Computed example of a mutant assay.
Amino acid sequence: MVDSSAAIRRGHPAIFGLLAFVSFIVAVIASTLTTDFNNKGNAQSSAITGAVRYSVFVGWWTFLFSIVYLVLFLVGKGGVVTSIAGHAIWIVLTWIFFLAGAGAVTGSMHGAQNCSTSDLRYCGSMEALMAFSWIAWIILTGMLAMVIVIGGGAFRGGRTFKEGLNA
Rank of each mutant, 00 (worst) to 15 (best):
M1D: 07
M1S: 11
V2H: 07
V2L: 08
V2F: 12
D3I: 11
S4W: 12
A6V: 12
A6T: 14
A7V: 09
A7T: 07
R9A: 15
P13G: 12
G17C: 13
L18S: 15
A20P: 04
F21K: 02
F24E: 01
I25K: 01
I25H: 02
I25M: 07
V26D: 09
A27M: 14
A27E: 04
V28I: 12
I29H: 00
I29K: 00
I29Q: 01
A30Q: 08
S31K: 11
T32Y: 13
T32H: 12
T32L: 13
T34W: 09
T34H: 11
T35D: 09
D36M: 15
D36T: 14
N39G: 04
K40N: 15
G41Y: 10
G41E: 14
N42R: 15
Q44E: 14
S46V: 12
A47H: 14
A47Q: 15
I48Y: 06
I48G: 01
T49K: 14
G50F: 08
A51E: 01
V56N: 07
F57T: 11
F57I: 04
F57N: 07
V58T: 13
W60Y: 10
W60T: 12
W61E: 08
W61C: 06
L64W: 06
F65L: 13
F65P: 00
S66P: 00
V68M: 11
L70T: 01
L74G: 02
G76I: 06
G76C: 07
K77G: 03
G79V: 02
G79T: 06
V80G: 06
V81C: 05
I84D: 02
I84L: 11
A85K: 06
G86V: 02
G86Y: 03
G86W: 00
H87V: 02
H87G: 10
A88M: 09
I89M: 04
W90S: 06
I91R: 05
W95S: 11
F97R: 10
F98M: 14
F98I: 09
A100N: 08
G101Q: 04
V105G: 03
G107T: 05
S108P: 08
M109S: 03
H110Q: 15
H110K: 13
G111V: 09
Q113T: 07
N114H: 13
D119E: 14
D119K: 15
R121G: 14
G124Q: 08
S125T: 03
M126I: 01
M126N: 03
M126D: 00
E127C: 08
A128Y: 04
L129N: 00
L129C: 00
A131S: 06
A131H: 03
S133N: 13
A136F: 06
A136L: 01
A136C: 08
I138M: 08
I138W: 11
L140N: 00
L140P: 03
G142P: 01
M143D: 00
L144S: 09
A145L: 06
V147K: 01
V149F: 06
V149T: 02
G151P: 01
G152S: 03
G153Q: 08
G153M: 07
F155Y: 14
F155L: 15
R156A: 10
G157N: 14
G157Q: 08
T160Q: 11
T160Y: 13
F161H: 03
F161N: 08
E163M: 12
G164W: 02
L165H: 01
L165T: 04
L165V: 10
N166S: 10
